[in-house]
Amino acid sequence: MFFEGNAHKFGNDINTDYIISGKYKFKTLDMVELASHVMEDLDPDFSSKVTPGDFIVAGTNFGCGSSREQAPLVIKYARVSAVLAKSFARIFYRNAINTGLPVVECDTDLINEGDVLEVDLSQGFVKNKSSGVSIPIKPLPGVMIKILNDGGLSAHFKKYGDFNF
């Protein structure tokens, strides 16, 4: 998996309420509609700023809070190609892989707002084209690579009918 796009930077502890507020997510399963509210409480214009393929780049504990799977889904439907953070909250991390949203753990201090990035998940690197710096990434656990390669957990189950690691 290879992606190229611009970085949109956020801070630490970006919780799932910020990613998609409860006041929207309980009402509908229309992810396109929900995606128009992604990150709204932090940046009301965020969804209109994203160009398909861009990255969300954050600090520690990205996705903390609730178990809502709408959080990785709205990021995906906002056409963000991957989330890069120093660390992730565990339920969000699982949900992202299960729904096929790539999540990358790396030193995001080396990335500034608007930087142009290349992310190569197969080769395992992030290249900051704006600064010329290459950033190593923490590899995904084997189980998660398997789920991601199958296209998410639903596709994995459809293929095997059970967990098949």
Binding site: R94, G152, L153, F157, D162
Partner: peptide, 20 residues
């Protein structure tokens, strides 16, 4: 422990869940 919707669906079918 809390899981997402897709994990829950997998457990509804299999009665099992993977954990580290």
């Amino acid at each position: 422990t809390g899981v997402g919707s897709t994990d829950l669906a997998a457990a509804l079918i299999s009665g099992r869940m993977w954990f580290k």
